[in-house]
């Protein structure tokens, strides 16, 4: 062994000057994936983690394509984000909800000819303190999501008050090492002040309630190994429109992170009743690339 240590010593002597790594340095999967609103998190719930793998001396970025297919709707999301020094995350997302089944009730009930809803979301998240792996009290972040309808006709007709709105978020995330069967456990909690109906796709505020309300969101995941994370998410929702009840969301997910460049997330989602259509369950699939 000694001669190998000598070779090592020589290599150290020849060590090159520092150069920035091609892709960020944070540990695998600690950037989460891209949520349907663009911010880093799981699928439905944002986490305190910032996207990509940028650590404190690095830039990073993400691109994501996601699709949710429930009984009567399909949602497509295209998202992108940048992360500076694992301090600030800026994200954009465009959501398109195909109304499939709802088209008929909109036509019959409201005389509206519309088959999709579109929304743009611009998000910013700041890591306030801590690190998800290294801090005993976990990582804390604050965020905003500014959301704007691209066509307000349908939300307007069903009683929404505004075509744009801003969600304010406070999140905490912590990885607990060797917590269950020696596997690492990731826990996240988010408080969101919001007026958004169905995340904003049905506008903001309504006839039943037009004020901000604070909603609780949470998720837990277990790292089976460093490439596989399985878990569940829950997202409480406001109920602002008398036109239809709005239910909380939840999902069961599995994320595969073969390396830093790629993350694939699949989930069983339950969105409850959405705009008069009952019990919307379905599949969610998301691809994320990091650079």
């Amino acid at each position: 062994m000694t001669h190998r240590l000598l070779i090592l010593a020589t290599l150290f002597a020849l060590a090159c000057p520092p150069a920035s790594a091609a892709i960020g340095s944070r540990i695998w999967a600690t950037g989460g994936v891209s949520t349907i609103e663009g911010s880093a998190g799981g699928g439905l719930v944002p986490w305190a983690l910032l996207g990509s793998y940028a650590s404190d001396e690095e830039w990073g970025g993400t691109l994501a394509l996601s699709q949710a297919e429930t009984d009567d709707y399909s949602l497509s999301v295209t998202g992108a984000g940048v992360n500076w020094n694992n301090r600030i995350e800026l994200t954009v997302a465009r959501q398109t909800l195909d109304l499939d089944e709802l088209v008929f009730s909109l036509k019959d009930g409201f005389g509206l000819e519309q088959d999709e809803l579109n929304q743009d979301i611009i998000g910013a998240k700041v890591r306030l303190a801590g690190d998800v792996l290294y801090s005993p009290w976990g990582q804390w972040s604050a965020g905003v999501q500014y959301k704007r309808q691209r066509d307000f006709t349908v939300p307007d007709a069903i009683g929404a008050r505004d075509d744009s709105g801003t969600d304010l978020l406070l999140s905490a995330s912590k990885l607990i090492f060797a917590a269950v069967f020696d596997r690492n456990l990731l826990v996240n909690a988010t408080a969101r002040a919001t007026k958004a109906n169905q995340g904003g796709l049905l506008g903001f505020g309504g006839d039943r309630n037009n004020g901000y309300e604070v909603m609780a969101e949470a998720s837990v995941g277990v790292f089976v190994n460093r490439q596989w994370l399985v878990g569940a998410e829950y997202r409480q929702k406001p109920d602002n429109l008398s036109f239809a009840n709005e239910d909380d969301w939840w999902d069961l997910f599995v994320a595969w992170v073969p390396d830093r460049r790629l993350a694939v997330t699949a989930a069983l989602v339950n969105l409850g009743d959405v705009a008069t259509l009952d019990d919307q369950q379905g599949l969610y699939l998301s691809l994320q690339g990091s650079f």
Binding site: M1, R4, L5, L8, F12, A15, C16, A19, A21, S25
Partner: peptide, 30 residues
């Protein structure tokens, strides 16, 4: 000891950190 040795090889190749280890007494560090 083997894990640490392999770790040292990885450090040598890692341009993010190898400069920090320049000139360390490798045997003692190991």
């Amino acid at each position: 000891a083997q894990i640490v040795e392999d770790l040292l090889y990885l450090i040598v190749d890692d341009e993010r950190i190898n400069h920090q280890f320049k000139g360390v007494n490798v045997a003692e560090f190991h």
